[in-house]
Each structure stands twice: as structure tokens, then as C-alpha cells.
Design a protein around this nucleic acid. Structure first.
Length: 963
RNA sequence: GCGGGGGUGCCCGAGCCAGGUCAAAGGGGCCGGGCUUAGGACCCGGUGGCGUAGGCCUGCGUGGGUUCAAAUCCCACCCCCCGCACCA
């Protein structure tokens, strides 16, 4: 391992020194442009990222060896909120965060004082981003990625902002950007929207926004004043029997436009954030118990009594609910409790007898449920208290059954007979229309931000969106993905198309974060997935921008119009921006040469977001010949069967690879241990067996390089087999790589070649095997260079190869180097040994000699005639006449029968003489394998000697007799 | 719930799209042997059941079906994983 790391460092240094991977536009020379999304640099990368980048690099290296001018660039993503949020947390002295980042930094820096200093700089988000960008860059180098680093940038740079500005102006021109209201999770502490990343435990316990229907119940004795009860099941309004309030909770009466409404205090805050434009003013504050005993009218006209219930949570929706005891377990249980304890009502000045008249009303039919659904479930579960947590489960059960199977059974002809799911939608719309209700947004659970701020649902006014639902755009994108874009593995195409269909309006800017200001509304910052959709175009020109020292202010939209579209006159643009004409032309040249992207490789997690935007934006902004050609994907990486996560502390960082493993080992494992479309399980045990194989490969190569091989004579059939086998594997490996089947490629080019060598060595002996390896070693290292570039460079050097192997060329493996006859014959030898062993296992008591009997040539002729379609009659006739088999027709028929049972075209590939020859050549080997002495006989010979089983000999399946 | 993927031998995992040559590649583990002072590494053999001759039986989530033939195709069911948006 030490040795590996030394060799790796050596070649990384040399590649860098000689600028081996710099890519320059070379019109006329075939190009290959491959990209992998730039990493977000808020932390060190782990082996999951490494898998993706490694696959990308393997392809880049392969294409380079195939003679393409390959561009493989990389940059760093720093825009958006996470880096900012981390930085703020560190500045605030958040202990957990500081600790985590100290750990990260300590991966790269030893001195504690130094670490302390670095953490201090992280209070500035840009320093944090740049620190990790630097490290990630080094980690990438340490893995041997063949990146052209001159094109490196980060997304916080002003030249990048200029580019994104151009992009958004274009999108706006095309009418793809809209403005409107937007519902978000919002932190009351920070007074800003906060998403899953900022909410405590949201990754494990998801936070969802629920849309309640807040229904207004007019108070009987008061003018224009309503109790607002919120529900997720407005269809149950038909069965409402009373209103529940929490007697201990505080409620407020507020002016709500021209009306007055009553909601809980907590609900008021939420309404203020959801109805920002509404004129809301508090009139007075009351306890819930003061509301008990009042009467209200339901929008459906019935008169309902307000009653107390402890289960009502003032911090959930409006803090008031209506009771529908037939279908709502909570309501049912609360009602029953009250009925058991009517005396309690006296506390509120109510006559206990009022509850006698309140009874569930059945409004929903579900097949198989006779009684009230809530009652059935509650009794079955044995729930008696409204504080029983199992009520949540009971509610879920009832709802699930009713939603799918329930049918409305109500007086109203408009709703009677409707399925519950349908009725729910209709009544909701109707209530909204009649101004009897309004939407109220609430979370599915209580949530707090990571600093403890309360999260509620708020409505953002004037949110900017990119509208992916615009028909021409969606259709063209869909069409393009469906017909033109190659997606590998194939099975992700459907998912991609689904994502394209599913995308609608998507917010594209936020009020905070690092990034580019929205050019037409600078209070907003372009959101970080939206600013990263066409940046591959930026790679083609960024090094020129730097070379000429062009400043961001000079990069006016007209510059990009020229570079990307060829629109405008360079001389004029030059005079208006101060950018030299030559620079403009160079950029134009680079862009037209490299674009489009030939292949983009990334993880499947990007399908429904980044990759969809990537194609959408290219369709919007670039003509068909500049749109992506291929997308390739890989699955994620887990470790020892478990998902890697910060909380479990089982994340392996790329940095650890460079320190504790080796680059080539990692590459071999990460790309070879699982298919792209399966999860890769990083298992230490397997990694170490891969290391063993890598070692074996190196020592084999070393032996081969050092071997003196003048007197070896590869004339045996098995030598031809070996040559053929190896060439076949290398050819198949090439084909696999061409299809981006990386695992297959590694299996063939590495493992299967190794095991072919093992076999061959066992068969013919060490020295000769090594010499045969020496013969094809140059081809072999070339084919393996994309996966294990360092080791193969080193071997190439031992071999005295000229220049860098990484810029050499792919070996030509001509189909003629494959000898099928030799392969068929060697398979025969293997099968024969297997059969012998099988029989020897059964027939334990053996004496010690084996006769191997080669089928007579006439048997093969029989088969040949059958393949040619000759009739049995003809075959028998020929045999009788030509081979004197009259009287032995039975044997002929046996051969015919066996052929018919398993017809095998390979039988025609060789002859009986070759069979005999190979067996003679392999005799010693067979003896060694079975531990018995062996004679090779022709069938006719054996017959003469009266050796049993002689007639069982069949072409490619010699008979044998164990004496 | 909607959408996508998947269930293979003790374990991991290929095969399935293009049905037969699949008792099912390759690892790992376990058992035995070689090498070695010993261990490790490496190499060889075994690892569903039965069988004194290369064979037979049972088998690829469950239950049906199509077919001369199904791990592979069709239907139903059960179970598992992933995504569901403003977050990179």
C-alpha cells in the first residue's frame, strides 16, 4: 500500500508538471466533452461522491486513449444558503457545528492552534467555501482525476455572476420566468423561510405542509362574528354536531377585513403570515371557557353548541374544531367522555342535559361498517380517553378506509352518493366560493429550526418562479429527452421523463444566500439549483476570460450573445466592452468547438432536479445541435450494509482514501464492485481482497517485465487458447466501456484476465505463463489505464514505454486474434476434468488408470450432416458406405439422438484430430488434476482393446473409463 | 397516496430486457488439502439432496398462467428500497 501511494504521488506530480490533461480547442480533431456536476463545497467529500467522479474520470481517460480531444473540467459550487447558514452558526458559536468543522479541518491540518485559526475564518462564508474548494481540489488530484484545472472557478465569482445574469435575462425574454404567491415553511425566530436542512430532525421526521379548510361558523348572538374551525376533512361538515374549544386556551377576537373572527392566539400569528395583505386587528382576548355554551350556525344552516374538549390543541390550525363524532375518533371519544361526566358542564353554566341531545350522525357509508365508523374503531382499540395517543392511529385508519371506500349519504342531492375523495374537493371549493371558509396552512407536526425558532407556514408574496409547465417548453424538452438524449443505464429514462412531466413552477430566487442577483429585481438572489444549469458552457471560456484579465463589468450580455449565439459584431462588442476582439473570437471558437456536452455523469439523486433543469434550460437557451447528448448515472454508496450519515459517524471521506487506502485501489473498487444502477456497498473485507488482486497484478507485471523469454515456444493449442482468451476479454472490455458498463469492463479487463492467467499458469507452468503475459502486457496496461492509471503508468515505465501511458492510444484488438477453435477445445478439456472428478467422487474405490477415448471422426461427420439438414436415412446410408458401419446402425442412431437432445454449433468448429492432439498435449495436466495416470485412445483403438464405455465417446465430450 | 426500482443459494451479488447450453458467473464465509517454523498472503478441491460412471430430484419472494421448455414472459398477491420540490 505504501508503494502504491508513492507511485500515485509520483505520477500525479508528473502529470501536473507536464500539463497532461489540459484541453485546447483543436478544430478538425474529434472532441469529447464530459462533465460531472461540480461539488458543493461546504464540507469534505466522501466516497459516495468519489464513486461518481471516478466513473467520470474513467470515461474521460478512455476517450482520451481512443484519440479524442477530451475536455474534463471542474469547478466549485458555493451559491445558496447552506454555506451561509453554517458560517452563521459558527459565528454564533453553535457548539455542534464548531465541533464538526474542527473535525473536518483536522483531516487536513494537524496543528490545533492552526485549526482554531481556520475555524475563525469560517465566520466568513466565502473563506469556508474556498477552504473546502481547495481541499476538494487536492482530494481530486490525489485520486488521479484527469481534470483540466485551468478552467476551475467557483460560483461566487463575479465573472460567473455575469454569466448567470445573461442566462436569466434570456429566460425572462423567453417568458419563462413568472411571479406569484408561494407557501413555505417559515422560521419565526429568523423571520425567513427555512427548509428541511434548517429544521431540526426534518431529515428523519419529515415536515409537511397541510392545507386545512378553515370554516366559519357564525355566532348566533353576535353580528358578523365567526368561530373558525379548521378541518382536513371538510366533507364531514354534514355530520357536524357541535364545536370544540379548549377551555384553558387563549383565543382572540380579531377584525378580519370587514368581519370578525375568533381563533386561538397561536393561529393569529399564523394567519398574519399567511394573509399578509389582510387587515387584521385584535379586538379582544378571551379564554376558551368563555366561549363554551355559545351557539353558532354552520354554513349548512344547523345550529351548534360550543363545548369544551381537552384534546383541542390551540397550536394546531385555528385551535377550534367542529365535532363530527360519527367519523372522527377524537370527537367520538370526547363526546362519550362528556356524556359520562355531564356534571362538568355545570362549571360552564350549562345544563348537563344538553349533551343528551348530541349524537353522531352517520353520513358516510363504508361497506362492512354498520355502526358509526369512529365508534367501531375506537371500541375495537379500547380507547376511552381523548388524551390517548392511539387516537392518531385510529383517525388514520378511519380516514384511509373512508377515503377509498366511503360514499356520502346525506340529504344534499349535490353530494349524496359521491365518493368521499370527490366530495371532499367539491365541498371545499363550494365553501371557498361562498366565502364560508378559507385555506389555512399548518404543519403535520410541531417543528423548530436548528436554533430553536418556531416554524410555521407562511405565504411569500411576489416569489419569482421559473415556470416549467409552459407547454412549448415542456413539450420540446420532453420530446428531446425521449428521442434525442441518450440515458445510461436505460432504466432511468422513464424516471427522467416523469420528472420532466412533473415539474411545474419552481421558485428560482430567494431573499438571502450567496449568489447572483436577479437582474430585473436585485432584492432577490438566484437560487443555487437554478444558477447551475448551463454552466458547462462557461467552462469552455473561463480560462480565456482569465487569460485576458477580463473583468465582470465587461461581460455584458452582448458578449455572451456573441460567444454562444454568434450574434453581433466582435469589433463593435469589443469597442463597447473593452474586450479584445481576439479574446471574443477565442471564446467563440472554444465554445463552438467543445459544445455540446457529450456526456454528463452524476448520481441518480439529480434526476428530478438538477438534470431536469439542465436539459430544460438547454432546450430553452440552445439550438438542437448544442444540447446534451448523453447522461449517465450511478447509484449511491453505503458502508457495510448501512447508509452513511453524519449522525452515524460512518462516513468515509475522500481524504481518508488518500491517507489510508490508495487511489487506484479506490478506483478499482468504486467502479468495479457494483453495476452503475445498483447501490455500492463499501465493505472493508472486500476492499482488502481487491487490494490483493491489485498486488497480484503488479507483481505479475513486474515478473513479466523482468522475464527473459527467448526460448519459449507457444505452439500448443492451449497457448492459442490463452492468446485468444485474453484478446477476447480485452475486446469485450472495450465494448463494455463503450456502453459505459464500467463494472463489466473491470470484471473482464482485470479480474477475468487475472483468472485466465492463473489457469494458464497452472496448465503450462509459471515461466511460460509469465512470458505469454509479457507478450500482451502493453495491451493490457493500456486497457487498464482508465481505472488504475497510476499503477499502469509505472508498469509502462518499467517496460520502457515512451511518454505517458495516459496519452498513449487504445490497443487495437482485431477480431482475428480470437481463435474459437482453441477456446472450444480448451473448454472440452475443462469439462472433461469436471466430469472425471464428478465420477471419481461417486466411484470412490479406484485403482488408478484412466482411459480417455476420443470419438471416431465419423461421429463428427454425422453431426455435420445433421447441421447441413440431411435426413437420417441419408446419414445412415453414407456411414454404412463410407465408414463401413453396416451392422452398427444403433451407434449411429445414438449419436443422432444425442445431437438432437442438445444441438451445439460449436461441434462444427473443430475436428477429431485436433481433439486428439489437444488431449495428448493436456495429458500430463489432466493426470495432475485427477491424480491418476491417463491414456488417450481413439475410439476404434479402445474398441479393439475391449475397453468399456468406448462407444460413449462423443465429439467434444470424450468418453472415459476408470480402471 | 403518487411515481420509480427491487426480492436469486449461509451472506453479498451477476443473470432476467433478446425463454433452453442455469444447480445458476464472481466474491465472502465455512470445511478439507498444498505451501510455511507458525500465522498471514497465495494456490487447489468441496460447500441443495440423492447416486459404485459423466445422471436424477428439488430449486431463483408467494400463488396462478403461457410454452415442448421459465430465475428469465404474463396476471395477482406479499415484502423491501428510493424520490415527491424550492433543498444542495
Amino acid at each position: 500500500m505504501e508503494w502504491l501511494r508513492r507511485v500515485e504521488a509520483k505520477w500525479q506530480e508528473l502529470w501536473k508538471k507536464h500539463g497532461v490533461f489540459k484541453a485546447e480547442a483543436a478544430p478538425g480533431k474529434p472532441k469529447f466533452y464530459i462533465t460531472v456536476p461540480y461539488p458543493y463545497t461546504n464540507a469534505p467529500l466522501h466516497i459516495g461522491h468519489g464513486r461518481t467522479y471516478t466513473v467520470g474520470d474513467i470515461i474521460a481517460r478512455y476517450k482520451r486513449l481512443r484519440g479524442f480531444n477530451v475536455l474534463f473540467p471542474m469547478a466549485f459550487h458555493i451559491t445558496g444558503t447552506p454555506i451561509l447558514a453554517i458560517s452563521e452558526r459558527i459565528a454564533r458559536g453553535d457548539e455542534k457545528e464548531v465541533k464538526r468543522y474542527k473535525e473536518y479541518v483536522s483531516k487536513y491540518v494537524q496543528d490545533p492552534a492552526e485549526i482554531e485559526k481556520i475555524i475563525e475564518t469560517f465566520k466568513d462564508p466565502l473563506s469556508l467555501a474556498v477552504f473546502f474548494a481547495e481541499r476538494v481540489h487536492k482530494d481530486f488530484d490525489a485520486l488521479g482525476y484527469s481534470i483540466d484545472w485551468r478552467r476551475r472557478f467557483h460560483t461566487g465569482e463575479d465573472i460567473y455572476n455575469a454569466f448567470v445574469t445573461w442566462q436569466f435575462l434570456k429566460l425572462r425574454e423567453k417568458g419563462l420566468i413568472k411571479r406569484g404567491d408561494h407557501i413555505v415553511t417559515y422560521c419565526l425566530l429568523h423571520r425567513q423561510p427555512e427548509g428541511e436542512d434548517d429544521i431540526a430532525d426534518a431529515d428523519t421526521n419529515p415536515v409537511e405542509i397541510l392545507e386545512f379548510t378553515a370554516i366559519k361558523f357564525k355566532l348566533v348572538d353576535e353580528e358578523n362574528t365567526y368561530l373558525v374551525a379548521a378541518t382536513l376533512r371538510p366533507e364531514t361538515l354534514f355530520g357536524a354536531t357541535n364545536i370544540w374549544v379548549n377551555p384553558e386556551a387563549r383565543y382572540v377576537v380579531v377584525e378580519w377585513g370587514k368581519e370578525k373572527i375568533v381563533v386561538s392566539e397561536e393561529a393569529l400569528t399564523k394567519l398574519q403570515h399567511q394573509y399578509v395583505d389582510k387587515d387584521i386587528r385584535v379586538v379582544k382576548s378571551v379564554y376558551g371557557k368563555e366561549l363554551v355554551g355559545k351557539q353558532v350556525y354552520s354554513p349548512l344552516g344547523s345550529k351548534l353548541l360550543v363545548l369544551p374538549a381537552a384534546f383541542v390543541d390551540p397550536d394546531n390550525a385555528t385551535g377550534i374544531v367542529y365535532s363530527e363524532p360519527s367519523d372522527a375518533p377524537y370527537d367520538y371519544v370526547a363526546l362519550m367522555e362528556l356524556k359520562r361526566n355531564p356534571e362538568k358542564l355545570r362549571e360552564y353554566g350549562l345544563d348537563p342535559s344538553v349533551v343528551d341531545e348530541i349524537n353522531p350522525v352517520k353520513i358516510i357509508e363504508v361497506e362492512g361498517v354498520e355502526d358509526h365508523h369512529a365508534k367501531v374503531v375506537v371500541e375495537e382499540m379500547g380507547i376511552v380517553s381523548q388524551r390517548d395517543p392511539r387516537l392518531i392511529e385510529a383517525t388514520r385508519r378511519v380516514y384511509k378506509e373512508q377515503y377509498y371506500k366511503g360514499v356520502m349519504k346525506v340529504d344534499d342531492p349535490e353530494f349524496n352518493g359521491l365518493p368521499v375523495s370527490k366530495a371532499k374537493e367539491l365541498i371545499r371549493e363550494k365553501l371557498f366560493r361562498e366565502n364560508s371558509a378559507f385555506p389555512f396552512y399548518e404543519l403535520n407536526r410541531k417543528a423548530f429550526c436548528r436554533s430553536g425558532g418556531k416554524i410555521i407556514v407562511a405565504k411569500i408574496r411576489g416569489q419569482w418562479f421559473i415556470d416549467y409547465s409552459i407547454p412549448w417548453w415542456k413539450n420540446e424538452t420532453r420530446e428531446y429527452v425521449d428521442k434525442k438524449l441518450l440515458i445510461v443505464p436505460d432504466k432511468y429514462k422513464k424516471e427522467m421523463l416523469n420528472a420532466i412531466d412533473w415539474l411545474e413552477r419552481r421558485p428560482c430566487a430567494r431573499r438571502r444566500g450567496i449568489g447572483t442577483k436577479l437582474p430585473f429585481d436585485p432584492d432577490w438572489i438566484i437560487e443555487s439549483l437554478s444558477d447551475s444549469t448551463i454552466y458547462m458552457a462557461f467552462y469552455t471560456i473561463v480560462h480565456i476570460i482569465r487569460r485576458y484579465g477580463i473583468r465582470a463589468e465587461q461581460l455584458k450580455p452582448m458578449v455572451f450573445d456573441y460567444v454562444f449565439y454568434g450574434v453581433g459584431d466582435p469589433t463593435e462588442i469589443s469597442s463597447r466592452t473593452g474586450i479584445p476582439v481576439k479574446a471574443l473570437e477565442d471564446m467563440r471558437k472554444e465554445f463552438t468547438y467543445w459544445y455540446p456536452v457529450d456526456q454528463r455523469h452524476t448520481g441518480i439523486a439529480h434526476i428530478s432536479n438538477h438534470l431536469s433543469f439542465y436539459v430544460y434550460h438547454h432546450v430553452a437557451l440552445f439550438p438542437p445541435d448544442k444540447r446534451p447528448r448523453m447522461i449517465t448515472l450511478n447509484e449511491l454508496v453505503i458502508r457495510e450494509g448501512a447508509k452513511m450519515s453524519k449522525s452515524k459517524g460512518n462516513v468515509i471521506l475522500l481524504r481518508d482514501i488518500a491517507e489510508r487506502y490508495s487511489a487506484d485501489l479506490f478506483r478499482l473498487y468504486a467502479a468495479g464492485a457494483a453495476n452503475l444502477d445498483s447501490v455500492l456497498d463499501w465493505r472493508e473485507k472486500e476492499v482488502s481482497t481487491v487490494l490483493d488482486s491489485l498486488r497480484r497484478f503488479v507483481s505479475l507485471a513486474k515478473q513479466a517485465v523482468e522475464a527473459k523469454c527467448s526460448d519459449q515456444n507457444p505452439s500448443l493449442m492451449v497457448d492459442k487458447w490463452f492468446t485468444s482468451r485474453v484478446n477476447r476479454l480485452l475486446l469485450e472490455a472495450t465494448n463494455s466501456l463503450e456502453r459505459v458498463e464500467v463494472r463489466e469492463y473491470i470484471q473482464k479487463a482485470f479480474y477475468q484476465v487475472l483468472s485466465a492467467i492463473d489457469y494458464y499458469r497452472e496448465r503450462v507452468g509459471e515461466d511460460k505463463a509469465i512470458c505469454m503475459v509479457k507478450n500482451f502486457l502493453d495491451k493490457w496496461v493500456k486497457v487498464l489505464n482508465p481505472v488504475i492509471p497510476h499503477v499502469t503508468e509505472e508498469i509502462w515505465e518499467w517496460m520502457g514505454g515512451k511518454g505517458f501511458l495516459s496519452t498513449n492510444s487504445w490497443p487495437r484488438i482485431v477480431p482475428e486474434s480470437i481463435n474459437e477453435e482453441a477456446e472450444v477445445l480448451e473448454d472440452m478439456v475443462k469439462d472433461l476434468i469436471d466430469d472425471l472428478k464428478n465420477v471419481l467422487n461417486v466411484v470412490k474405490p479406484v485403482k488408478g488408470h484412466v482411459y480417455i477415448i476420443v470419438a471416431s471422426p465419423w461421429k463428427r461427420e454425422v453431426i455435420r450432416m445433421l447441421i447441413e439438414g440431411k435426413s437420417y436415412k441419408e446419414v445412415i446410408k453414407t456411414m454404412r458406405e463410407k465408414h463401413g458401419l453396416a451392422g452398427r446402425e444403433k451407434e449411429i442412431l445414438l449419436v443422432i439422438q444425442q445431437y438432437r437432445r442438445s444441438p451445439d454449433a460449436r461441434l462444427a468448429l473443430t475436428t477429431a484430430e485436433k481433439e486428439y492432439q489437444v488431449l495428448v498435449e493436456a495429458r500430463e495436466y489432466i493426470e495432475r488434476r485427477i491424480g491418476l495416470s491417463v491414456d488417450i485412445l481413439w475410439e476404434e483403438e479402445a474398441r479393439e482393446k475391449n475397453i468399456p464405455k468406448a462407444d460413449k465417446a462423443y465429439p467434444l465430450k470424450p468418453g472415459f473409463y476408470i480402471e
